[in-house]
Nucleic acid binder design. Structure first.
Length: 429
RNA sequence: GUCCCCAUCAUCUAGUGGCCCAGGAUACCGGGUUUUCAUCCCGGCGACAGGGGUUCAAAUCCCCUUGGGGACGCCA
């Protein structure tokens, strides 16, 4: 039975590097039908906070990484003490200055095995004796991580590269405790665009910031999994695809640079593939949060019309936030105008005539609208080119967007007529 | 400084000795589709860090150099 764990220390938010580690563990567990454990490593009482735990949990939930078991390391103190005492009795550990020290022989070497890297040799003179229990009675990471992994019957430890140097110490503890070791996979780091440590000066590093920017969790998951994992030439994966295809053998062992360009592209791909109804549910709070569209108006909006508008607008957005901004045009409210146009007297007259015709139209729809426009303009000896851009800007506030008749159809006759008249009046030269 | 890890286009990567004068994706540039924009389609640009070996044959194996990253706590 496969058992893996993600063991963050709650000293800050969950960053994208940690999220990828969690993701690989989760995917491996779900692929193999194993168990995924979330273990909060809060033995550093000074730096651990409840807010951080909450943020980590929120981040994991948002990403859709559900866990089967949950532990707080600080609550396992008795068990750690028990294990440490056994080592004290066996002589593997001794006390000095109130702290408990683990004994490491000065000669020879410790060879550890990583499934990705292979055998790695450390000379013992590098290791030296180390503390497992502080003089205040609390235990140190390198010790509790081993005791917990043993107790929780962890079979595969998938964690960040920075822990590879800890493995020889941990291996000696496993041996002193008399337990076989799990398999280890040390993941290469995620770097910033300057190939240095990924940090805030490169942009967002927190998972929740990506949520707030309007990134879909499945897009972030897709992006993160590709940092160190690939499946042939495929790029876009659903969560189900990943669970089905993920294997540890396909893991890469070199560090990857985190650049958002591809994340934005993946976000668009996932928005294009999303269920329209579900996507509508996701943008609703974002539209309301912008302040122009009151909450009640959303439900009266007519969901078919909104779905039609959403279908047109989503291909033109890279984030949920962009999409929410565009969705405003579908409601009878003053819209944000990104582009303006001056309206000639001829255009103004044509727009008013069109507005009148639109209020009288019998069958509303893109097709009917096109006939109406072409018919009306022909009678006025004008062409679509004369008014298309002006009408687009009047109704949508933008000079670029979906097909004119499609988007007008989604906005609805009353609002279209009103915006046409208002804009023709306001912007007349 | 010592120890450890890593090294294919700007970026993510495919590639596990011959199928590779290296394939895909993003970004960028051009073209097509579109009244516009986006999507979509087509094309272009662009890499095996360097040097030695091993081999009939090396991006793939070995060594060195260089470069990048990480660890050296009574932090995790």
């Amino acid at each position: 039975m496969i058992r893996v764990r993600f063991a963050p220390s709650p000293t800050g938010y969950l960053h994208v590097g940690g999220a990828r580690t969690a993701l690989f563990n989760w995917l491996f567990a779900r692929h193999a039908g194993g168990t995924f454990v979330l273990r909060i490593e809060d033995t550093d009482r000074e730096r651990s906070t409840d807010e951080a735990i909450e943020q980590i949990v929120d981040s994991m939930r948002w990403l859709g990484l559900d866990w089967d078991e949950y532990y707080r390391q600080a609550e396992r103190h008795d068990r750690h003490l028990e294990a440490a005492e056994s080592l004290l009795r066996s002589g593997a550990v001794y006390e000095r200055d109130g702290a408990w020290w683990f004994r490491v022989p000065e000669a020879g070497a410790t060879v550890v095995h990583d499934e990705l890297v292979g055998d790695v040799r450390f000379d013992n003179d590098q290791l030296k004796d180390f503390v497992i229990r502080r003089s205040d009675g609390t235990f140190v990471y390198n010790f509790v991580v081993v005791v917990d992994d043993v107790d929780m019957a962890i079979t595969h430890v998938i964690r960040g590269d920075e822990h590879l140097n800890n493995l020889p110490k941990q291996m000696r503890i496993y041996q002193a405790l008399g337990h076989p070791m799990p398999l280890f996979y040390h993941l290469p780091m995620i770097l910033g665009p300057d190939r240095g440590k990924l940090s805030k000066r490169h942009g967002a590093t927190s998972v929740l910031e990506y949520r707030d920017r309007g990134i879909l969790p499945e897009a972030l998951v897709n992006f993160l999994v590709r940092l160190g994992w690939a499946h042939g030439d495929e790029e876009v994966f659903s969560r189900e695809d990943l669970v089905r295809l993920f294997t540890l053998e396909a893991l890469n062992k070199s560090a990857a640079v985190f650049e958002d360009a591809k994340l934005l592209w993946l976000n668009q791909q996932h928005m294009k593939r999303a269920d329209l109804g579900a996507l509508l549910g996701l943008v609703e709070p974002l539209v309301v949060a912008r302040g122009r569209v009151p909450e009640g108006m959303w439900t009266e909006g007519g969901s078919d019309r909104l779905l039609a508008g959403l279908a047109l607008l989503r291909d033109r957005a890279r984030t949920l936030r962009d999409l929410a901004a565009a969705m405003e045009m579908l409601f009878p409210v003053p819209i944000e105008r990104e582009d303006e146009a001056t309206i000639s007297p001829l255009q103004g007259r044509l727009m008013r005539v069109l507005a009148d015709e639109i209020e009288r139209i019998e069958s509303w729809g893109a097709k009917g609208l096109e006939e109406l426009f072409r018919g009306t303009l022909a009678r006025e000896s004008a062409t679509l080119k004369d008014v298309a851009l002006a009408c687009r800007i009047a109704v949508t506030g933008r000079k670029a967007g979906p097909g004119l008749f499609e988007i007008l159809s989604a906005v609805g006759p009353a609002v279209v007529a009103e915006r046409l008249r208002a804009y023709a009046g306001a912007m007349s030269a």
